[in-house]
Amino acid sequence: MQSRAIWPLLALVLILIVAGLISPGFYEIRIVEGRLFGNLIDILYRAVPTALVALGMAVVIGTKGIDLSVGSIIAIVGAVIVWRIKMGDPHVAILFIALGAGILCGMWNGFLVAALGIQPIIATLILMVSGRGVGLLINQLYGGTDPSFESAFLQGLSTGSIWYIPTRLVLAAGIFAALWLLIRRTALGLFIEAVGGNAAASNLAGVNARLIVFFAYVLCGLLAAWAGIIMTADTHTSDPVSVGLYIELDAILAVVIGGGSLAGGRIYLGMTVIGALVIQSLTTATLISGLPPEYNLIIKALVVLTVLFLQSANARRAIHRLVYRRAS
């Protein structure tokens, strides 16, 4: 992993340097109203939802699976939050209800993949397609007239700050630490990677492959729910049609930039976060450069292509050969 970790980190540093060149003062960090402000903080701040979703995706991809439904899970979680607020539940309880909704969605995906043996891309496509409809139906539960809300507690989690630091960064760091402990300080990581690498062999070695796969989707649902809570509290409204649209693609990209392979068998949690930061810093850099937003996607595509190209063993061998031949 060591040598492959260079490229995403290098990409991140390069993007930040270029951004600094086009926009003087890019690195400035000020304190405004008791909270840190600045482009670097902004990148971290905005990357949180994608990073959380990408971490769940990394676990699922580690089992050789994929979860296309994360955007829809965010939509469902948002709808559930607003519904329960309108029903007058205590807001702390709503936090847990929202997480529960994400877990339920993950259990559904896990059931389809692990118990019924449906291919992950198809199995999660079902919730991806239907999830936003489910969100709209939940909005109907309270009449659906005005899906906006106020909640000091939930908004505090998303847009507040603790000790000059945005709360969501603290929250995300805590979630990352918990996930890392779960994956790397128990045998779960080994089992997930074994099942993703060779499910038949893992089964014969005594690993309960189905349970492991099921659990990975549940974990992914839970992490998507955290992203959903932060995003919903940020906009204080539920918008099932467009919230978190295409976030699954950014999440998959983040995992792959971080060195994960869709062939499964390896989980790189830290590098996945770097991947999410690469994506977000690109977006931010294009925005402040003054280029029209259309360019954002093209530049993103080019950078991603470059990083993946440099990571690919074949490309590296070809380059090596070119250099070597010329030298000799």
Binding site: L188, L190, A194, G197, A200, A201, L204, V207, G265
Partner: peptide, 23 residues
């Protein structure tokens, strides 16, 4: 049916002991 090719020798050897121990 035997090996997980991407995993290290150590991890492959550990797999059965570890699954006996529980996650």
């Amino acid at each position: 049916e035997g090996l997980v090719g991407e995993l290290s020798i150590r991890e492959n050897i550990m797999l059965s002991i570890q699954s006996k121990q529980g996650w």
